[in-house]
Design a binder for these strands. Structure first.
Ligand SMILES: [Mn+2]
Ligand SMILES: [Mn+2]
Ligand SMILES: [Zn+2]
Ligand SMILES: [Zn+2]
Lengths: 138, 138
DNA sequence: TGCATAATTGTAATGATTATAAAATAAAAA
DNA sequence: TTTTTATTTTATAATCATTACAATTATGCA
């Protein structure tokens, strides 16, 4: 569990005014490293904040991403997921159990051909398949 | 321009019965390497086939992907694009002009940590940024 | 306190995709 | 060729995540 103070400071560091809702939403994403959807965030926090609006969740996540506090993970066609981890990593989605795994890779060795003088803003490696657990269950 | 015969044969090779619509749709994707959306495919082919239904385009693309004839490219949050190129390659989306570029990379050197015994079905490298052309325009 | 600004809310609109059932076409059987 | 059956295509409605918008509430400051 992270202290409210740290969460608030981090928002400020990224140029975001730390309102109560924003703190709660960012805190949730940081403490629950499950790449949640808007709906998951909304439903979970609604218990604690009954007046919370889904529009606020959308607006807040959009603001967070613009300010580069979080990243959206576009591994599913039909919904956007969110990630607060700042280190470079890829995502694996198990097509059987639905879980999304983080993984590291040797990005320094990765060489792109034909993208000289292109400006990179966001790089994603997305893999779909069957996770170790599901694969062992046969 | 590819011959109808080749297109038809390739569909059969992938276990797809080559109906007129299916041939036209696959032919379009192969001959127009622009990662088209469903809407682009539908609108373009509608000129030639006025009775074409958008549902048919959806159904056909779904069938093609299930049979591994084509791949869906999920680089945009709000729409799916389609690609008939079979070689391994990544995608770059220019955030200014919207164009999607193919690029090659040294996939043999890519090492994933923590995915031992995971089964891979589909791997995608997606990059967003500004393309060379747009970057030079300042 | 009163005013300006920012944040939040609720509802409606959008738009891509999917579901469904009917119609058209093709293939198989008689 | 006719009849029957299976496949493909179509049109329309439903779904659902996201966005637009305008009203309301909260915050900061003179
Ligand atoms: Mn992650
Ligand atoms: Mn491509
Ligand atoms: Zn699994
Ligand atoms: Zn560009």
């Amino acid at each position: 569990m992270q202290l409210i103070q740290n969460i608030s400071d981090e928002l400020i560091l990224y140029g975001i005014k730390p309102s109560y809702h924003r703190i709660k939403i960012y805190e949730y994403i940081v403490n629950n490293n499950i790449h949640p959807t808007v709906d998951t965030i909304f439903k979970t926090l609604s218990n604690e904040i009954p007046t919370l609006s889904k529009t606020t969740v959308y607006n807040t996540l959009k603001l967070f991403e613009e300010q580069k506090l979080i990243k959206s993970v576009n591994i599913e066609e039909n919904e956007i997921r969110y990630d607060a981890r700042k280190n470079i990593h890829g995502h694996f989605k198990c097509e059987r159990c639905g879980k999304i795994y983080d993984f590291d890779y040797n990005y320094n060795d990765l060489k792109y051909k034909g993208l000289e003088h292109f400006i990179f803003n966001k790089t994603d490696i997305m893999i779909k398949g069957i996770c170790k657990l599901c694969a062992s269950e046969n």
